[in-house]
Amino acid sequence: MKLVHVPLRVAIGAFFLNSGLSKRTLEGEAAEGLHGMATGAVPQLRRFSPNQFAKLLSYSEVAIGAALVVPFIPSALVGLGLAAFGSGLMQLYVKTPGLREPNSLRPTQQGVPIAKDAWLVGAGLTLLLDDLTHRRHRRLHH
């Protein structure tokens, strides 16, 4: 891991670990609400029960968070995971009614908490591209 990646990876990793750990025991109405919103954007998630989905989301967030803070996992790999997770949230944002202004990508008040997660895609792609271009540069100059 490059030293310049440390602040980004630790900050986002800590956030993901906290979020994932807080969802470990999510059940009942809370899990149903989360599952309902997700299945509206990604119908394939209906194959999971709300409690299964909450656990899967919890495990995914903990895995991404841990991968971000562990220094020997390549930034390209964690960047790819982060960008994929963020892309899923952007799909949720685009497909969920009421989160965007009509005929626009601008968020409504209800959409701001999801729209702001666009930074996950940007941060993930930055880690991925920087790591890949850095590796290519090293190969060309050594």
Rank of each mutant, 00 (worst) to 15 (best):
Y59F: 15
F15N: 12
A115G: 04
A38I: 10
R106C: 02
P102K: 00
L57W: 14
K55F: 15
T39N: 02
G98A: 05
L80E: 01
P74M: 13
W119N: 05
P107S: 09
L132I: 07
L26M: 14
V4L: 13
L21S: 11
T96Q: 02
H137M: 11
L8W: 06
I12Y: 08
A11V: 14
L17H: 12
Q110P: 00
S87N: 00
L127Q: 02
S60N: 12
M1L: 04
P7K: 07
L132E: 10
A76T: 04
I114T: 07
N103F: 11
P74A: 11
V121K: 04
L8I: 09
L68E: 06
F48D: 09
S60E: 14
P50V: 15
G36P: 01
R138T: 01
V6L: 11
Q91I: 02
R136A: 09
V42S: 03
G124H: 10
V94L: 05
I64G: 07
I114Y: 11
H142A: 03
A67S: 13
A14I: 15
A67Q: 09
A31K: 11
T39W: 04
A67W: 11
S60K: 08
L21F: 15
G28F: 14
R138Y: 05
L34K: 06
S19Y: 14
E27T: 12
L105V: 07
R139L: 10
P107K: 05
Q44H: 04
E27K: 13
P97M: 01
A83D: 03
F72E: 13
V69H: 09
E27M: 15
L17S: 11
F48E: 08
L56W: 08
A83C: 03
T25I: 15
A41G: 06
L99Q: 00
K55M: 15
D131R: 00
R46V: 09
N51H: 11
L82E: 01
R100Q: 00
F72W: 14
L127M: 03
A63F: 15
G124Q: 11
V69E: 10
A76M: 08
G33F: 06
M90R: 00
T96I: 05
A41W: 07
S75P: 03
L132T: 03
H134V: 10
W119L: 12
P71S: 12
G122H: 06
K95S: 02
L125P: 00
Y93F: 10
A67M: 12
R139I: 05
D131E: 06
